[in-house]
Nucleic acid binder design. Structure first.
Ligand SMILES: [Mn+2]
Ligand SMILES: [Mn+2]
Ligand SMILES: [Zn+2]
Ligand SMILES: [Zn+2]
Lengths: 149, 149
DNA sequence: TAGTAAATGCAACAATATTTCATTTGTAAA
DNA sequence: TTTACAAATGAAATATTGTTGCATTTACTA
């Protein structure tokens, strides 16, 4: 999980990226940094229902451009957003980690600690980025699963 | 690529899955089996523009349920559909291959020949399925790329 | 404390996907 | 071959997700 931050640190973060410190932006940062999973666009929209939908989209887009968060689609094609862990910057994302999609709680986990093994592509293909997806049960849901081995 | 098939083989395929042999279904099969890349929902819709949109969605859904095709989301979150290569059946997909998203031609390639290396998940996570995504340039687009190393 | 660029809010629109129901069609049985 | 029925399609309405244009407000600078 991204380390929990306080409001002053969020303001510094916005400063660092030359973004104005506004209430909607601080609330989005606060919500996303307080979780250890990605947040879906529908969830964001319902929690932030007093912020205009368009504003929310613009905040998410600018945060993604700046390298503060990254977007990941879950198994249903729904957009999810998560805090960037490492050295992501404007136009320089390095989010080559595993995204675990729990079929129980539907949460998307960014497993940053897991390094991807080297992949050899068929001749001719030149890859720039990799992302590994897995689906199954997260620790919490696996414990609750009655039919487990 | 899935082996090219003729119309009689498509009819047999529908028979095998207890699906009625209708013109829209045969056209979708014919289109998808003739390509070595996935087909996006917008592409399908524009090519099959005389088939009702809802019918198209229903055909794609039932083909996916039967294990004839699988759905994959590209970098933009757009749904793409590709023929299943191996032993997929109703409720039993085994499409654990690499999906290569070309940033040039935007095509999605199913690289079935590439076997995924074993992945060890953090303790507690129980994975059922894996999918690896890569983005970059496909052989065709890489050849056309002037700025290549 | 102004002045200004940035950010927000709102309305309209576009694209994707689902639900409901009437009509048509493929298939199996008579 | 004809009939009967379930399956499949078509059409309209609705829902969800995302974008564009423009007026208004706000945060920061000077
Ligand atoms: Mn992630
Ligand atoms: Mn595939
Ligand atoms: Zn879970
Ligand atoms: Zn290409």
């Amino acid at each position: 999980m991204a380390s929990v931050k306080n409001n002053y640190q969020f303001e510094d973060l916005l400063d660092k990226h030359q973004l104005k410190k506004t209430a909607p932006r601080l609330r989005v940062l606060s919500m996303m940094y307080s979780k250890n999973t990605a947040t879906s666009q529908p969830d964001l929209e319902s929690v932030m229902n007093d912020i205009d939908r368009v504003t929310l989209y613009r905040i998410l887009n600018v945060f993604e451009e700046k390298g503060i968060i990254h977007k990941v689609f879950d198994l249903n094609g729904t957009a999810n957003y998560a805090v960037c862990h490492s050295d992501c910057g404007a136009n320089h994302h390095h989010d080559e980690h595993l995204h675990f999609n729990c079929t129980g709680c539907k949460n998307v986990y960014c497993l940053n600690e897991l390094t991807l093994p080297a992949i050899t592509l068929p001749a001719g293909f030149r890859a720039e980025d990799f992302t590994l997806y897995a689906s199954g049960l997260c620790p919490r849901c696996d414990k609750k699963n009655p039919a487990r081995a």
